[in-house]
């Protein structure tokens, strides 16, 4: 955490507040108390503990990957995760999509006045725990408090630096005709977990978000010698948007088969009920990989040895010809274009 006054031996007794006050962001004693009690304890590591305005560390050798993302999910707690763990997984996964091993994170909190201290603490602990289980330290951070109504409970930004310990060029331009398209698991769980909670929908079993880090299976594929051409995580607007972006960036036609794309039955039912398409719903622990067809079995074997990608499957291929577009073979056998979703998915009337 950035601290201009690193002395915490305050002679005035700590006043316990149950809720965040504007003063907690004011740079004074209350803010120091907050940082000390809520953030430093769970996050503590030598770089952060140095309590400087910026983190100082020696970069390891190799190409670096750098990414940033902001997290504004509502509700902040959902089955399978919360905004804290999500803000680690999302950024770690963005690094993983370059085949990078995450080496450090920053995190910045924007907190709404009035948020309960207990809630903030739960989020901070969850974030710290997620970072620890990914083996990546949070080395710098920031806290701001805004007036009630100026933000929705809590917003978090995390940035991440990763190191690429390989010589592959993993990018949309690396996609080649004939590549197999692998999907790391079933679709739509994060989006539907959040949506079901918002809409108060209940199913036979609770839909849990798929929020999880995916860097380990990616690094293992590289380690195993899989010549990955491109990776993309399937966050906002899901598989449809990711495939369309990559078709456009690579200038190639991609074809997938509807019957090969795994969707959990509860997610499927929830999507039917709300008029949404699982292919356009957000995921937070799923990615697609473009791999030379000859290596796809090897890649699938590696992916399936990790819990997060245990249900990895090949869902299609990159076509040898055709305009840049995404084609989907329906269960009935017809081939149509899989369009880019036009914006946020709105629930249909009937």
């Amino acid at each position: 955490m950035n601290r201009s006054h690193p002395t915490f031996s305050c002679p005035i007794p700590i006043v316990h507040h149950e809720r965040i006050l504007m003063a907690h962001g004011g740079g004074g004693r209350l803010m120091h108390q907050l940082i000390e009690s809520v953030f430093l304890r769970p996050f503590g590591n030598p770089v952060l503990n140095a309590a400087h305005d910026s983190a100082q560390f020696l970069p390891p050798k190799g190409r670096l990957a750098f990414t940033t993302d902001s997290y504004v999910v509502n509700p902040i707690f959902f089955p399978g995760g919360d905004i804290g763990s999500l803000s680690v997984h999302g950024t770690v996964n963005d690094l993983a999509m370059s085949g990078a091993r995450p080496i450090c994170l920053s995190c910045a909190f924007v907190i709404e006045e009035g948020l309960s201290m207990e809630t903030l603490s739960r989020v901070a602990h969850s974030l710290a725990q997620a970072a620890a289980s990914c083996g990546v330290p949070v080395v710098t951070g920031d806290t701001k408090v805004v007036e009630r109504g100026k933000c929705d409970s809590i917003f978090i930004n995390t940035s991440g630096i990763g190191i690429m310990e390989h010589s592959l060029s993993i990018s949309p331009q690396g996609i080649r005709p004939g590549d197999a398209i692998l999907l790391s698991g079933d679709l739509g769980r994060h989006g539907m977990a959040v949506m079901a909670l918002r809409e108060g929908l209940q199913f036979e079993s609770t839909i849990e978000s798929d929020s999880a880090p995916v860097h380990e299976p990616v690094l293992a594929m590289i380690q195993a010698g899989v010549s990955i051409h491109c990776l993309r995580d399937l966050t906002r607007s899901g598989l449809s948007a990711a495939l369309n972006e990559l078709a456009e960036a690579s200038g190639l036609a991609l074809q997938v088969e509807e019957s090969l794309i795994p969707v959990n039955e509860d997610v499927h039912s929830a999507c039917e009920l709300l008029g949404l398409d699982p292919l356009c719903v957000a995921n937070e622990g799923r990615f697609i990989a473009f791999i030379p067809a000859a290596e796809s079995e090897m890649a699938l074997n590696v992916l399936r040895s990790f819990q997060v990608s245990a249900n990895a499957v090949c869902i299609g291929k990159v076509m040898n010809s055709g305009d840049p577009a995404v084609l989907i073979k329906s269960r009935m056998g017809s081939i149509r274009l899989l369009d880019m979703p036009s914006g946020e998915q709105l629930p249909r009337i009937c």
Partner: peptide, 18 residues
């Protein structure tokens, strides 16, 4: 609307109907 005939044709168009 997404459920309109033109929107359905657009969304599920084949390469030749585009």
């Amino acid at each position: 609307s997404e459920e309109g005939a033109c929107a359905a044709y657009y969304r599920y168009r084949t390469p030749s109907t585009s």
